[in-house]
Design a protein around this nucleic acid. Sequence first.
DNA 1: GCATTAACCACAG
DNA 2: CTGTGGTTAATGC
Length: 225
Amino acid sequence: MTDICYYCKKKSKATGKLDQKELEILGHSCNQVIFQKGDTIMIQDAMSSNIVFVMEGLVKVHAMGPEKEQILKIVKGPSYLGIPTTIGAKINEYSATAISKTSACFIGFNVFKDFIKQNGQFAFEIIVELCKSELHYYKKCINQVQKQGPGKIAEALLYFSEKIFDKQNFKLPLTRNELGDLTCTSRETVSRILSDFSNSNIIKVNKRNISILNKKQLELISKMG
DNA sequence: GCATTAACCACAG
DNA sequence: CTGTGGTTAATGC
């Protein structure tokens, strides 16, 4: 099947810039894999020789630090995974785990590299994605250092609501502990802040189901830190 | 000093 | 896996 990528409906913006011949080459070196919730997609400290393209699903990107696990971000398909570590390092500097049913394509690094070298349009779209990602991390870094607990949790809730689910009501795909790992706080602090928000009628909490009742207030808390 | 913030621990659902 | 209470440490009036 060399035309799988040609007919693929989930092409990335970059892949949309490839011509039919290049898509055929991609089809030869591309392997689609379905992951179930909890499955490991890539693991820290292992050799990396593939670029992963998440077509659909939610993925947790995380790494083990000296103290504890750190969740770097939650990625929603369609999105590339692992470009920085595959290009910039010999071994994976982070892990990726599916947190919902996920379909992803593994693309041979050499093929990917050739596209970048030979197709400027493709390369440009990749750079755009990398730049957006870098800016996201700058922002996250500043916020993590400067915001207090409620600000960080408010920011995370808004992120899920706006960027991941595009809804006011959603089911958190993380445990309280993981939400703590994402926001650099403890699980206890996450619990308390969620209760506080709930008591102030800013959100409604039922287990992992969250409803944002007062978005303005949440935005204010997030902004003020 | 006193208040605020948040981590750590322990224990109970 | 969660929620809560007590304790402790750091920080800033």
